[in-house]
């Protein structure tokens, strides 16, 4: 193995300013280090990364249930309210024949949160056990998850816009439903979960098992 990591050389990278710092006294991963360039405290690896990711992930999964049960917006026309959940809103688009929009909303508000939650569970599991761990593939997967995160807010912004624009008194008006709270929480929780996952753990685990194998061979 030709590539050395900074950690093995007794160095640690500041996550904010990308300055390499000497890990002076100990090689302990949970020791706080003061960055010599930006004067911020940081850890060589995010502490309890897997535990935090798992916890935020479970919270996101729980919040995702009421987000789909309760109506996300209520359309009033002539004084009669018609509640819409996320799924029934998508169904409406399909009824009108607007398939591209239906696909965009379905991707942003159902598929992306689910893929993020399931994907992070998978990553945490793989890093914890080291079973069939392929760091190159998995780190690409992680970056895709991180990139997709904010796009789930789409539905929230659409509801916010509709509430503001469609305000024609008795004739038609739109008001937000309770699901929007839970849905936003889902998105925020998955974003924090993705942020607390440390992709460097993938490589550490692989390197660790490889080193152990080499020792066994000797």
């Amino acid at each position: 193995m030709s590539i050395k990591t900074a950690q093995e050389s007794g160095l640690a990278l500041c996550p904010k300013c990308h300055k390499l710092n000497d890990m002076k006294q100990s090689a302990d991963n949970n020791a706080r280090i003061l960055c010599s360039r930006c004067c911020g405290m940081f850890y060589p690896r995010k502490p309890y990364s897997l535990q935090y990711t798992l916890a935020w992930n479970i919270a996101a999964l729980i919040a995702f249930i009421p987000a789909n049960i309760y109506p996300i917006m209520i359309l009033y026309s002539m004084g009669i309210g018609e509640p819409n959940t996320i799924l029934s809103g998508i169904g409406e688009f399909i009824d009108y024949g607007l398939y591209p929009i239906a696909v965009i909303i379905f991707t942003a508000s159902i598929i992306v949160p689910l893929i993020k939650i399931i994907g992070l569970f998978l990553l945490v599991y793989r890093v914890h056990t080291g079973v069939r761990l392929r760091p190159d593939k998995h780190s690409k997967f992680y970056h895709a998850l991180e990139f997709l995160g904010p796009w789930s807010m789409l539905d929230v912004f659409v509801v916010a816009l509709l509430v503001a624009v469609v305000e024609l008194g008795f004739v038609t008006s739109v008001s937000a439903g309770p699901a929007i709270n839970y849905f936003t929480l889902t998105v925020i929780f998955t974003m924090i979960a993705a942020n607390s996952f440390d992709p460097r753990l993938l490589w550490d685990k692989k390197q660790g098992s490889k080193n152990a194998k080499e020792e066994n061979d000797d």
Binding site: A6, L20, P199, R200
Partner: peptide
């Protein structure tokens, strides 16, 4: 032996030096 840290750079994603 560690060289001057300015001559080294680490990958932010996988910590390779």
């Amino acid at each position: 032996k560690i060289k001057n840290t300015k001559q080294l750079i680490a990958c932010q994603q996988c910590d390779a030096l």
